[in-house]
Amino acid sequence: MDPNDIDRLMPTELISLNDPPTEKEACIEYLLDVVADAGRVDDRDGALAALYQREEETTTGVGKGIGIPHAKTDAISRPSVAFTRSEAGVDFESMDDEPAHLVFMILVPESGSDEHLAVLSSLSRSLMHDEVREALYDAETPADVQSVMKEAMA
């Protein structure tokens, strides 16, 4: 994935540095509202249902303090990646039983399955590096988060 895709997929208005709710479903709704408030959700209820359905299939807690709820849905018209971080952590039922402190939400249109997999794969790979996670914890502005992700995906 091209680092320049970050501007398109994850504009600063999709990055929240406010502490989200600590309960998984409430955190998912919180991030979905960030995407909706940016005008990128056509059907909030449909998007939420797709996210919850995906959560039922298998955990989106990937370990190392990371949660990546994601869905393909016709409830949105363009791919979006939202981000928040949680001081307390959110239980995403990760494989290492650790709470998620860095939470990314990926939403792509139903027709965008290749892009969905590319974004998920690229994001997951970059977040396995300790220095990337540390830089996200240290980021002071949404622009800082964007910068970290551009560098990580370069």
Score class of each variant (00 low, 15 high):
P99C: 14
N18R: 13
S80E: 06
V41E: 04
R44S: 08
P79C: 12
T84Q: 08
I66E: 09
D33V: 04
A75D: 02
V81C: 04
E55I: 00
E87G: 02
E87N: 10
L31V: 02
A50R: 09
A38K: 02
T12A: 10
L31Q: 13
D33Q: 15
R85W: 09
A49R: 13
L51A: 05
R78D: 10
T73E: 08
D74L: 01
R40P: 01
P99S: 11
A49F: 05
I15K: 04
D43F: 07
E25I: 01
D37E: 14
A49K: 15
C27Y: 11
I15C: 02
G46W: 10
T73D: 05
A26L: 12
M95I: 13
Y30Q: 11
D45T: 03
G67C: 07
A71P: 01
Q53E: 15
P99L: 13
E56M: 10
A88L: 14
R54F: 05
T58I: 11
R40K: 13
R54V: 00
G65P: 04
R85L: 10
I66W: 08
P79S: 15
L14Y: 00
A82M: 06
I28Q: 13
E13H: 08
P99A: 14
G61E: 12
A36K: 06
D37G: 12
T58W: 14
K72M: 05
I28N: 08
P79Q: 10
D74R: 03
A75N: 01
V81Q: 05
L48Y: 04
L17C: 09
N18L: 12
D42A: 10
A49E: 15
E57A: 08
A75C: 04
T73K: 01
K72G: 01
T73H: 03
G89A: 10
H70F: 09
E25M: 11
P79A: 15
T22C: 06
D74F: 02
E13D: 15
P20K: 11
A71T: 00
V35D: 04
R78K: 08
S80H: 02
P20M: 10
V81P: 00
V90D: 10
E93S: 12
A47M: 05
M95Y: 15
A82Q: 03
T58S: 13
A100N: 11
A88V: 07
R54Q: 13
S77N: 14
I66K: 05
R85C: 06
E13Q: 14
E87M: 05
S94H: 10
E93K: 14
P69N: 13
E57S: 06
E25S: 07
S86C: 10
D37M: 07
L48C: 07
A88D: 14
V34A: 09
P20C: 11
V35M: 07
R40E: 10
P20L: 14
L32C: 08
D42T: 01
G67I: 01
I68S: 04
T58H: 13
R85V: 00
G46D: 11
D97Y: 12
A26M: 15
V41T: 02
S94C: 09
